[in-house]
Design a protein around this nucleic acid. Structure first.
Length: 767
DNA sequence: TTCCCCACCCATTGG
DNA sequence: GGGTGGGGAA
């Protein structure tokens, strides 16, 4: 994909800006809110604005701070600024909030007891830590899931509630547990000289908020603030922005309330709507001309988003040609859905000359990527999966990072425990337990405890057997050696030494099945250490670890030249654009997702997600659904997404793919693919494998209506002592489990949709 | 002590 | 379908 507006408008001259855009670029005195619809040239405006500040107004580059949503967006924005300014601008700060916070904490964290080498705990680290804490509190981790507790803590942090202030607000036993866990969690993080993701923002905020001298330093430093994707900022980020802008109020925020899709991560779209409240004198510029998509796509997506109540009524328009209709297709299963996508992708590539890197398949949840991957492999089509099992989540990568983290920051207990016996060196789980509880007792980190285990009277020497003590001692020596080296050699060299000295290299090489692959991964990690720019080996190591902790999935996306089909979630696709976009899983329960069908707000966010997906497309948009989708091994039927119904018919063409598939030659199809129209198959499915109940019997796939819940479709039937327990997805009420005996369901005869489609179809899949 | 296998539990979206 | 944790065997 190319970034926001690479269509043939020359990017180098300010004169190419529209009047509106120019207004947004040149209004540099005081708060500015840019409401930028999709494809309205927002990145262009931001880069021109920065170039204008630096190039025209002679503002020193280091006085400008631009904040973006991902590192990738930061990289691209920087490149564009540099292109406009005609050279590198290393002093210009373009970062994500998290990486900016991290930078401030490295420098100023000493005031709250953070050493510069602090570790950043990610999801996995947090869960490991929380599990230990819950064990320590003798709490059953089955009843109180570490993830749930961490969720509560994160919620608290995001409304600036620290552990002490959280306690009085406790209203349930669950919160009581969470409160105690929160306190210990914070204590352990500090002992480990570590922070979590929330802390990167929270502690930075606390630092600036309570140290007026620091705040003034930063306010003086950054004279101009730009914040992208403002609709997805959370309260702490807003707080940070307001602190920094205090005084000069040169704060320019860019966003689109209709693309706010991260409220579950505490993002608050109200930040955007309230901007005028914080800054009553704010100027507002609306960029509502779309340069990206065809008129069809723009109008159809406007119709969908128009169903949301609480939106800013900024109508997007375009001068682009009408383009071809949006293709809506139905497949029987997810495999067939994937196959349809692939057929059409290959047709686009071969007949319409669309580059694969200009095509993306988008879905609601990561699990949907599997069927697509399988199809890509079957058709030998090169693809890239964005997200999925991320590079940095692979075991060997995590292990290597853990080694380096211990070297950089020995008190990092979670990292230390990860590698102390990896490869196996005779330090058993029992020994580690003993170390951990002894360290807890002393209120120190595990490293501090074991680092002088050689001392004759060391308390662990009596608790552990001699072999264990020797092993631990050898481990301590190794870490000390590596820590010493870390001050002298490059990260690349440090990785090499670590691999040798730790025995990890041998461990990998002895892995018969996956050894080569894992070794390649390690080499790839080693390769990323090449472009570090620190001033000392130590700084480079910290930079390396920080990058590793803060990379996002999209940051690592392949370059356009590689010609890969992109498989990506709708969330990750925000900010990207493609010639052709396939949205799969357009079903009730999928998009909107089943867990977001309860409340009106959640539903509106799902609709915005749909809007984001649709507006990624420049020319071709396909929306597919599968009639049956397997989930947790089981297969269930589903209704078409309500969002499909919201598309005006004039912009769409419906393709009954089932009939198409019968005429399509298949390479090798398992027996499951019966070549019958969907309606017929739904009837075939009716006498299901589920034992029939005594009275009216139901089966998955049948449509029913309920007095209260309305229209729905049965997705599962379980036999419960003669009575059938029926799981139904209702169009409005969501998923319900009902008793066949009492639910009083009425079966609905399948009504054939008027088949207007075949004749108008412009060759979708049907070659 | 380590490794392997099986059972069980889980799954929206992500920096 | 997949990851993890626990238990048993080597």
């Amino acid at each position: 994909m190319t970034s926001a507006d690479s269509r043939p408008t020359p990017d180098s001259l300010a004169s190419t800006l529209t009047e509106r855009q120019r207004e947004a670029v040149e209004y540099t005195d005081g708060p500015l809110l840019i409401v930028a619809g999709p494809g309205s040239g927002k990145t262009r405006v931001m880069s021109h604005r920065i170039a204008y500040l630096i190039g025209e107004l002679d503002i020193p580059a280091w006085q400008v701070l631009a904040v973006t949503f991902t590192n990738k967006a930061a990289r691209e924005l920087r490149e564009r600024c540099e292109r406009l300014l005609g050279g590198d601008v290393p002093d210009l700060q373009v970062r994500t909030f998290h990486s900016w916070g991290s930078q401030v904490l490295r420098r100023e964290g000493g005031r709250v007891g953070l050493e510069p080498g602090f570790s950043i705990y990610d999801d996995d680290d947090q869960i490991r830590l929380m599990r230990q804490i819950l064990d320590q509190l003798k709490v059953d981790t089955k009843r109180y899931a570490p993830r749930a507790i961490l969720g509560i803590i994160s919620d608290a942090k995001n409304i600036l509630l620290d552990a002490q202030h959280f306690e009085p607000s406790v209203g349930s036993y669950f919160e009581e547990i969470a409160s105690r866990a929160y306190e210990l969690y914070e204590k352990r993080l500090r002992e480990a000289n570590a922070v979590d993701f929330d802390d990167l923002l929270l502690i930075t905020h606390r630092l600036l908020d309570s140290n007026i001298d620091l705040l003034e330093t930063y306010q003086r430093r950054y004279k101009h603030l730009l914040i992208d994707e403002f609709q997805d900022t959370n309260p702490i980020q807003l707080g940070l922005a307001r602190l920094l802008a205090g005084g000069h109020e040169n704060i320019c925020v860019v966003g689109d309330p209709n693309q706010s899709i991260y409220s579950w991560r505490h993002a608050d779209p109200k930040n955007m709507l309230d901007f005028k409240k914080f800054y009553p004198n704010a100027k507002i510029v609306a960029l509502d001309q779309n340069y990206r998509s065809t008129q069809t796509i723009i109008e159809a997506s406007a119709a969908v988003i128009g169903n949301n109540q609480g939106r800013i009524p900024a109508e997007l328009w375009t001068e682009n040609p009408k383009g071809s209709p949006i293709v809506i297709a139905e497949a029987y299963t997810e495999e067939e859905e994937a196959d349809l996508v692939l057929q059409e992708v290959m047709r686009l590539r071969d007949e319409d000359n669309v580059d694969l890197n200009e095509i993306a398949v988008m879905y609601r949840i990561n699990a949907q990527s599997r069927a697509l991957e399988v199809a890509c492999n079957r058709h030998s089509l090169p693809y890239q999966l964005v997200g999925g099992l991320k590079f940095y989540e692979r075991r060997e990568i995590r292990d290597m990072i853990a080694y380096l983290r211990v070297v950089a920051n020995p008190p990092d207990d979670i990292a230390l425990e990860r590698i102390i016996n990896q490869p196996a060196r005779g330090i058993s789980a029992k020994s580690i337990d003993a170390i951990r509880s002894a360290a807890r007792g002393l209120g120190t980190s595990e490293w501090e405890l074991i680092s002088d285990i050689e001392e004759p009277g060391h308390e662990l020497r009596s608790a552990l057997n001699k072999r264990a003590v020797n092993s631990i001692s050898a481990f301590v020596d190794m870490i000390k050696f590596l820590a010493d080296r870390s001050h002298q050699v490059s990260v690349t060299e440090l990785i090499d030494v670590t691999l040798e000295r730790s025995g990890y290299k041998r461990l990998i090489q002895e892995d018969q099945d996956r050894g080569d692959e894992r070794w390649d991964n390690i080499l790839e990690l080693r390769g990323t250490a090449n472009h570090l720019a620190g001033t000392s080996p130590r700084e480079e190591l910290l930079e390396f670890l920080e990058d590793a902790a803060l990379v996002s999935a999209v940051d690592t996306m392949a370059d356009d030249e590689e010609g890969l089909l992109t498989l990506i979630t709708l969330h990750q696709a925000k900010g990207l654009e493609y010639d052709a976009v396939f949205m799969v899983g357009m079903e009730e329960g999928m998009l909107p997702h089943i867990r977001a069908m309860e409340s009106a707000e959640d539903l509106e966010e799902e609709r915005r997600l749909c809007y984001v997906g649709m507006t990624r497309a420049k020319r071709h948009l396909y929306m597919l659904r599968a009639f049956r989708r397997s989930f947790r091994g089981m297969s269930g039927a589903s209704l078409p997404s309500r969002f499909l119904d919201e598309l005006p018919e004039e912009f769409t063409v419906r393709e009954n793919s089932i009939r198409t598939s019968s005429s399509r030659p298949r390479a090798r199809q398992p027996e499951s693919t019966v070549k019958t129209p969907m309606q017929v198959r739904a009837k075939l499915a009716a006498p299901s494998p589920v034992p029939a109940g005594p009275k009216t019997s139901y089966a998955p796939g049948e449509q029913v209506t309920h007095e209260k819940f309305g229209e729905g479709i049965i997705i599962a039937v379980d036999d419960d002592r003669g009575d059938q327990m029926i799981t139904v997805i209702f169009k409005t009420a969501g998923q319900k489990m009902l008793s066949a005996e009492y639910a009083n369901l009425t079966k609905v005869e399948k009504v054939k949709k008027p088949s207007k489609m075949r004749s108008q179809v412009d060759g979708f899949v049907d070659t």
